[in-house]
Amino acid sequence: MKFALKILKDFPSYLWSGWGAVASILLFIALWDVGNQVYGDLVLPSPLETFKTLVLMLHDDAVIAEIETTLYRASMGFGFSLILGSALGLLAGFFATASMMSRPIVTILVGMPPIAWIVLAMIWFGMGDETVIFTVIVASFPIIFVGALQGTRTLDGELKEMAESFNFPWHMRFFDVYFPHIFSYVFPAWVSGLGMAWKIVIMAELLATSNGIGASLAVARSQLDTPTALSIVVIMIASLMFIEYIILEPIKREVELWRD
């Protein structure tokens, strides 16, 4: 509770520190406009036209429904990876044999291109939610798993001994000695897992489903509707930036205050 309050208290100053980022985004939009003036509306619609289309789309219930579908798939897949990846990673970290055995498997999972998983999932699950959710899980699970594994593998033996010498009860051992360390590894892994999930969900939808924003992107492509395609890209990036910089980053800062 105290922790949540501290995050809220520091939030305005965090936001205020974001002017540099805002300036760089505006500069990027200016470059985009230059691109539009050079190449014309069909290749690269102007930022103004894109944002106008975006506003229209956001007032359209059908588009909102597509976004909700995508959000549902992404959160199902990511939630599943989060729970499974953290739990299995922690467990594997506690056993030397399990962590040794899991490494090559993780390498296979990470090394296999997501597009190959999508093809396999389409054969296994057909065109629908399961294919997308499965691909998201396969892509973000190894990232979270490795984070949790590293967290438990790198626990400091000297601190364990210190805790033992002062007879820390089990709940103090867990919450004061193990948890902060493990969390400092798992949390960044969650953040990268989330970024991965959001990218993969669009790609899987584009190839394997008839609804969701990924599918809308495919439709926009086939109709050469560049403003809509760009608006969808803006939605994707804006939502990712919102989650990452407005929600996760302030938490991360507080959690990692003790780090060098």
Partner: peptide, 8 residues
């Protein structure tokens, strides 16, 4: 060594 908890 001091063996302090770095997060406290």
């Amino acid at each position: 060594e001091a063996r302090l908890l770095p997060w406290k």
